[in-house]
Write a protein that binds this DNA or RNA. Structure first.
Lengths: 338, 338
DNA sequence: TTGTAGGCGTTATCAT
DNA sequence: ATGATAACGCCTACAA
């Protein structure tokens, strides 16, 4: 059996392709009931479905939305992807999920690929890099795309001006730190994300700001970095607690880091939150089921994904949407009585 | 700026579109160096990139692979998606990730949508449903697709004959149960997946078989079901341990169930593995970082995703590939001394 | 109410 | 070594 096209349907139904096109696209063009039925029957018989590539070619844009994530197996991106794909298909779009594996080169490559598919828009789920060449490259991609009508929206800070749907990462870092301080903690460690990713940078800044406001001296030894993964959090935390002894709490830049960190803390024989409290940012699904359940600042990943799709499909020169966040109290933070 | 096409390039370079096409496709057609340079320059200047929709239209197939998952925010599917997307882009393909939200209707709908995009192949990540209407519908989709050259490969049992890359779910259920029995457990609970999903059915069968071989009587009260999620596992386990009192171990049909179950067990005041041991199937990333670290049967998700892409791209009427599995011993199972 | 014809951006088949 | 031109499958003025 060959690829059946609109022509085959027209032949079988004994009408012109125009008529077929009108019937299947259900335009409110008055069409004789009899004709319509003939066409429907032929469509059914031939199992005809329109070729979207051809439609797109004609209409010079596709019903595809690109989503660029760093690691699709990470719940953070997974939940975003869920929001994006669901909303997209609700609206008759389909989403390309592009997994960069945290490789900036691939990220830019995907921009090209997506553009070649003439996608309707691109959603950037990962934060940008604070590196001149990366920023320049991204910038030039954006310019090119926006000139041609391709919408782009970011779910994390990119270090350049671009439509966005995100939380305030600085505030996020500040809030969780303040939460700890309010509960009597002063010896607070911080495990951040990659050094050059804006999301990390902002959250760390927030951490420092909270310390500063509370009059707690910032100690560089209390800081360590990871790559936003559980493994990274585990390793960074192991190092951290082997180096400094008086920590009563650790602030993690995301939930995965916290999950890894908790594992490391236990391994060193400490108890959570009795010896060391843990707080983080994200509230991915797993956070409820860790031991102890994780106190964390909720980021509405799923909704962000949905909104990003809306922004693209109902484009109106949006500047940006900042979502509010709040802390979900569970059991990983202890109140210190001094 | 408009969508620049091959025509614009040809004009700017002062050559025919044929020549441009030849240059960019790098066919080993002898082309004068000078001409080639002119074209390259024009391409560069115009930032031209071919329109894939048009290419696909011409060549009557696309470089897209569809992946149908039940829940992309679940690490199980996330890791598969990672394997699929990475391998796909290595090979110059792009993957559509379709999230069904565990809704069978959507699943079939995506088949249509994918087909309309004339994708190269479809990868079914979730298991099929043991329901007549579902099976029939799926069957008819398969027939249609295969007749038209669309490749389909499954990563889980579908209850019908279809090319696959998967593990033996029966053996998986049997292995983990035997592991428990060998360590002295006889009062073993089981938390399975959805009743009608073949993957669940097979794993439960394996569980029963192991019990049978060991001469342990099968007790219906020891069985409970979930939906493969952490939340489901939590609830099913809560119910299970409130109903039966003498359990020393619980066998979970996947890691998410186990994570939820561990949370429920702790909540009821039991300790793992001292009071109750837990084992499961999957070995998703999180399994290493649970408390205690989870003993589980490893399924090579990432590799399965990769292989599925290979199967599609190098189609050779493969019947099926069954991957081997082995248990990763961590700390959630206790040896019972009777 | 229905049909004709041109064009969307490519590639491939002929010519030249 | 290069160029015209005809598809690919669809949509949409414009006619009839």
């Amino acid at each position: 059996m060959k690829n059946v096209s609109i022509v085959d349907v027209a032949k079988l139904a004994g009408v012109s392709i125009t008529t077929v096109s009108r019937v299947i696209n259900n335009v409110n063009y008055s069409i004789a009931l009899k004709t319509r039925e003939k066409v429907m029957k032929a469509v059914d018989q031939l199992q005809y479905t329109p070729n979207i590539a051809a439609q797109g070619l004609k209409k010079s844009f596709s019903n595809i939305i690109g989503l660029i994530v760093r690691d699709i197996s990470d719940s953070y991106f997974g939940e975003i992807a869920e929001g994006v794909t669901n909303r997209a298909s609700q609206l008759g779009y389909l989403a390309f999920v592009c997994n960069t594996g945290r490789n900036p080169e691939d990220e830019l490559m995907y921009h090209d690929l997506l553009w070649q598919h003439r996608v309707k828009g691109i959603i950037l789920a990962g934060g940008g890099l604070d590196q001149v060449d990366y920023k320049q490259k991204l910038m030039s991609q954006l310019v090119r795309h926006e000139q041609c009508g391709l919408k782009i929206v970011s779910l994390a800070p990119q270090g350049i001006e671009i439509p966005y749907v995100m939380i305030n990462d600085f505030e996020a870092g500040k809030k969780v730190t303040e939460y700890l301080i309010e509960r009597g903690h002063t010896k607070i460690g911080f495990i951040g994300g990659p050094q050059k990713v804006f999301t990390s940078i902002e959250r760390l800044k927030g951490f420092k700001a909270a310390l500063d406001i509370a009059g707690i001296e910032y100690n560089k030894d209390y800081i360590n970095r990871s790559d936003f993964s559980q493994k990274g959090g585990y390793e960074a935390c192991k190092l951290l607690i082997s180096q400094v002894e008086d920590l009563t709490a650790i602030c993690c830049a995301n939930d995965n880091i916290a999950i890894g960190a908790m594992s490391a803390i236990r391994e060193q024989g400490f108890s959570i939150p009795k010896d060391i409290s843990v707080i983080s940012i994200g509230d991915i699904k797993e956070a409820k089921y860790t031991n102890p359940p994780l106190t964390t600042l909720k980021i509405p990943h799923y909704e962000m994904g949905q909104m990003a799709v809306d922004v693209i499909t109902q484009w109106k020169e949006t500047v940006g949407i900042t979502l509010s966040t709040s802390i979900f109290e569970r059991e990983s933070v202890r109140v210190l009585n001094k």
